[in-house]
């Protein structure tokens, strides 16, 4: 039964991924990316990773989608048709995929308790963490205690990203490239016509609430 659910979810994920690539309307693509996240959250539940599943459902399907929609509101939601025939990318992708599949042939079968991954520190966490940490959820004990420094590093990364987003978006309108007598030139904001300024002004206002979603 579990196998059936697993295979069905993986096939749905593949179909959704292909639909995202083929979709030219970015709004639809973002919505399907949300569906893709929820499907993967379902797969994580099947794989016993319940903590990962609810994080993926909240962060991947929720916050990510909101950020994407916020961006689409500013940049428009239609994608141009690619100009070149995608022969070279397809070749690169097929080659990489082939090499990766060749690599999996050496991997132990899925779900086997004898796999090497299950015989390093994992048994220690499963046997001792209830006495050592006293939290019934092993994932929580490892995240917050055994690998606490790792989690602190993660927080640092998020902080750096939040500062980066703030620095990028909180700045006023910068110089832009405009066509002057058939030549692309960089023009500072002050030199521009007033209606262009007015056109851009609400855009920077809208960026601010995006910040809150990130923390």
């Amino acid at each position: 039964m579990i196998e059936l659910v697993d295979v069905a979810l993986l096939l749905l994920l593949s179909v959704t991924a292909l639909a995202i690539v083929r979709q030219q309307n970015l709004f639809a693509a973002v919505m399907m990316a949300g569906i893709y996240s929820v499907l993967s959250a379902g797969l994580f539940v099947v794989m016993d990773a319940v903590d990962v599943a609810f994080t993926e459902a909240a962060v991947g399907a929720g916050i990510s989608t909101v950020l994407m929609l916020g961006t689409l509101a500013l940049v428009g939601h239609s994608e141009h048709k690619p100009k070149h025939r995608p022969i070279l990318p397809l070749l690169v992708v097929a080659l990489t995929g082939g090499v990766l599949v060749y690599g999996t042939l050496d991997m132990p079968p899925f779900g086997d308790p004898a796999n090497p991954i299950h015989h390093h520190v994992a048994p220690h966490y499963l046997e001792e963490s209830e006495h050592e940490i006293g939290v019934p959820n092993v994932v929580t004990s490892v995240l917050a205690s055994y690998r606490g420094y790792d989690t602190m590093g993660e927080t640092t990364v998020i902080f750096a990203a939040a500062v980066g987003v703030l620095l990028l978006l909180a700045r006023g309108p910068g110089p832009r490239r405009v066509l002057v007598n058939g030549l692309w030139t960089t023009v500072a904001r002050e030199e521009e016509s007033p209606e262009l300024e007015a056109d851009e002004a609400p855009a920077t206002e809208d960026d601010e609430p995006k910040e809150d979603d990130d923390g």
């Binding site: 794989m47 016993d48 990773a49 903590d51 990962v52 994080t55 993926e56 962060v59 991947g60 916050i63 990510s64 950020l67 994407m68 916020g70 961006t71 500013l74 940049v75 991954i117 299950h118 520190v121 994992a122 966490y125 499963l126 092993v138 994932v139 490892v142 995240l143 690998r147 790792d150 989690t151 993660e154 990364v157 998020i158 750096a160 990203a161 939040a162 980066g164 987003v165 990028l168 978006l169 855009a203 960026d207 995006k210 979603d213 990130d214």
Partner: peptide
Amino acid sequence: SNPIPHVLILTAIVVGVATSALGLSLVV
């Protein structure tokens, strides 16, 4: 089931969203 991949991926999901946020603000 083995809890270690779960812990690693919890970290990766959150970092992934931070990366996307930075990328999207660059796009804007």
